[in-house]
Every structure is written in structure tokens, then in C-alpha cells.
Amino acid sequence: MAKRLRRAVRAWFDARYIPRAEHRDAVRDILWEVQAAGRELAELRREVETMRARLAKPVTAPVTAPVKVPDPRQTARWDDAHRLASETASAVDHLLQNEILLWQAVDRIDLEGAT
């Protein structure tokens, strides 16, 4: 959820760069966006819950063709894979940034050694 909100806020920022004087308006706009995103999110969550409930329940109505119902264990694995991918990606981000700073520190030692 935090990610989705962050994305909405960021997208809004991307859309217009503003000088400091406009920041008060900007904050109001962001709040509006956050609320809108929040409403969207609540809706999505309801949808997901409805879908989950539907999946969990055995199909009682007579069906002409077999309905393929994803195994809850499988959906759990998908969720887990997604979580792992996101966490790995942000871990890599930090690793790369630390690498930059590490090289900076190494260069500084070289510099100090030279003088």
C-alpha cells in the first residue's frame, strides 16, 4: 500500500516541478491525490477480498465446463515471489549506492596516502 501511495505522490511530483512558493498548494494537491489513491486502494482491496472469498469457496453451482480454480497455496507462492522480488530489488539499490560510497572512501584513502 505504501508503495502505491508513494508512486501516486511521486507521479504527481514528476508531473510538475514547482518553486517553493507553490509548496503550500502542492501539499494540498498531494493530500487530495493521496486520498484519491487511498479510495482506489480500498476499492482494489475489496475486489481482491471478494476474489479470494470466491476462490476459497467450492463452486456449488452446476457448471457445464470445469472451472479452473487457482490453488490457494499457489497464489500464496505468487504473493511470496512478488514480495521477494521487490525486496531483492530494493536491496540491490542499496548495494549499488553503498558501492559508490565505498569507492569514494577508497579513493579518499589513496588521496591521503599520496599527500
Partner: peptide, 24 residues
Amino acid sequence: FRLDPEDGLDGTVTDGQAVRLATN
């Protein structure tokens, strides 16, 4: 590229946008 001692991960674009470095 390598940062000098006084450089950092945070920077500013000519249009005023604050940016953060990902990789060098």
C-alpha cells in the same frame, strides 16, 4: 565515474529537481 570527497549521492538538476544517484 567516481565521486570526489565532497560529492554525494544527492544532487540537483538544472531545472531544480532533486535527484539521487543509483549507480556510477
